[in-house]
């Protein structure tokens, strides 16, 4: 008998303990087929401030997909998910132990999902920055600046974006955000980019796992988790072919 050609849904294992899932989302440049009705008024209003239609579409596409994705884990309708923001702005889901963190750059977004609160992710497409050395001077710790001197010119861009995503993922994981001062944490500039030092209130540097996320293309992405071990599973989200949780 001929089999149906329809795609079978991706089966996702249930989250347990220190598991982390990282989803890669493709952001659409147009609003075609987007279920905008699942968004809150506040979300739509915020997006409307973006100037180009392409960027508005991407931002809306990200929010819609985020809700669709979380709805799988929460067993709720996308529209019924309610977010709250902690003191320094880190978003979380009201009445849920599920933790998530989102980052986007150009047409790609990452969503990290886990059960541990201290979860942060960051993605940056490599692009030319006006004054790389100036940014390093002002945003790297003195230890990192010292390490920077031994980085070859041709590796500077990549190293900068790698370390920046580490720092960003870290300040997002702590929930403190940029107010912490990115200079107050130190990473290994050479791979593996482990956390060497962090401000006291976030524990010992060894309490943190820094996981580089490998994707094709000129980009850096990092996941930071306050956990003993972390081996995230990476999936691609396809809103036309919803995954299922096993």
């Amino acid at each position: 008998m001929p089999s149906f050609t329809s795609k079978t849904s991706v089966q996702i294992p249930r989250l347990e303990g220190e598991d982390v899932h990282v989803w890669k989302l493709k952001l659409s440049d147009s609003l075609d087929g987007l279920s905008l009705a699942v968004l809150s008024e506040e979300e739509v209003e915020k997006v409307s401030r973006l100037r180009s239609s392409k960027l508005r579409a991407r931002a809306l596409s990200m929010r819609v997909q985020l809700r669709q994705l979380l709805s799988l884990y929460l067993d709720l309708k996308p529209i019924d998910i309610h977010f709250q923001h902690a003191e320094f702005g880190k978003p979380s889901i009201i009445n849920s132990a599920l933790s998530f963190n989102v980052s986007h750059s150009a047409d790609t977004a990452l969503v990290a999902i886990g059960l541990c609160r201290e979860l942060g992710v960051d993605i940056e497409q490599w692009r030319e920055l006006d004054n790389l050395d100036g940014l390093v001077q002002r945003n790297f710790s003195s230890d990192e600046k010292e390490q920077w001197l031994s980085i070859n010119d041709e590796d500077k861009q990549q190293t900068f974006f790698n370390i920046w995503t580490c720092k960003e993922a870290f300040i997002k994981a702590t929930g403190r955000g940029l107010g912490m001062g990115v200079r107050r944490c130190t990473f290994n500039l050479q791979s593996p980019h482990e956390l060497r030092q962090c401000p006291e209130q976030y524990g010992e540097a060894t309490d943190w796992r820094c996981v580089p996320l490998e994707f094709d293309g000129p980009l850096s992405a990092t996941l930071m988790v306050g956990a003993n071990a972390c081996a995230p599973l990476i999936f691609e989200f396809d809103s036309d072919n919803f995954p299922e949780i096993a």
């Binding site: 940056e124 920055l129 006006d130 004054n131 100036g134 940014l135 002002r138 945003n139 920046w164 720092k167 960003e168 300040i171 955000g177 940029l178 107010g179 001062g181 990115v182």
Partner: peptide, 26 residues
């Protein structure tokens, strides 16, 4: 994004050297 804020900070620093720390934005 933080990186954009850092870039803004860097440019402000070019115009007004040492006047502002990134954390002053808060």
């Amino acid at each position: 994004s933080s990186l954009k804020l850092a870039q803004i900070h860097e440019k402000i620093d070019e115009m007004y050297p040492d006047a502002v720390e990134l954390t002053d934005f808060f």
